[in-house]
Amino acid sequence: MKFVKIVLPAIVMLCVLSSFTFSKKGDKTVYAFGVSASFVDSVVYCTDIQALDSVKLTKEGFLPKREAYSAQLKNYLENKGELNRTCMIYFSDSKKNLLREFEKISDKYKKNKSVLFKKIEKNDFQFTKPE
């Protein structure tokens, strides 16, 4: 009987604790947005903040194949007839920090009256994981 009183609570406790999953540091969601500007055009395009599918940052904190994400935005805009654009991608595993960066960049372009700031909606363009 003493054995049951000790083992049974231990088994129940083990079941309860094992039902929770703990997120590892490397398993954080990575968020990104893109900005496209041109030296010969006054229009600046910017995407929505998007969660990147199954992407992990490197040990140094960089986004793997980030140039491929910039190329996706460039290709999208070229298909829309917007040629010779420079595309940049901003990323972070903290949505709050990325939102702050997004607001800082968009405010900078919106203050400049000679620049037309256009937002690319999420349903129009979505980053995909490069192969």
Rank of each mutant, 00 (worst) to 15 (best):
K5S: 15
K122Q: 05
K118P: 00
V12T: 07
K56Y: 04
K56E: 04
D27S: 06
K25Y: 15
L17H: 04
T21W: 01
L14H: 12
K24N: 09
L83A: 08
D107C: 00
V4G: 01
P64W: 07
F91M: 02
A37E: 05
L73K: 06
S70I: 03
V30Y: 14
R66N: 07
K119Q: 13
K104S: 03
N75M: 14
F20Q: 08
E131Q: 04
E82A: 07
K74S: 08
S114F: 04
K5R: 10
E101N: 12
V4C: 01
I105G: 10
A51H: 14
S18G: 13
Q50E: 02
N79K: 11
D48L: 10
F102A: 02
L99G: 10
F33G: 01
K104M: 09
K110M: 06
L14K: 07
S42E: 10
C15W: 11
D53W: 06
Y109A: 10
D27T: 14
K59Q: 10
V40L: 15
K80R: 10
K96G: 02
D53K: 12
K118V: 07
G26S: 14
S36G: 11
K25F: 13
R100C: 02
R66L: 13
V4T: 14
R85C: 09
L99E: 15
K129L: 06
Q72M: 06
F3L: 11
Y69G: 06
L14Y: 05
I49N: 07
N79G: 14
K2F: 12
E121H: 06
R85F: 07
P64R: 04
K96Y: 11
A71F: 03
D41P: 04
K74R: 13
E121D: 05
K122H: 03
R66G: 03
K113M: 13
S18V: 02
G34C: 09
A10Y: 10
V7Y: 15
S94L: 05
K25P: 06
V43S: 01
Q72E: 12
Q126T: 12
K28E: 06
V30D: 03
S54A: 09
L17D: 08
D41W: 01
R66K: 09
Q126S: 12
K59T: 08
I120W: 00
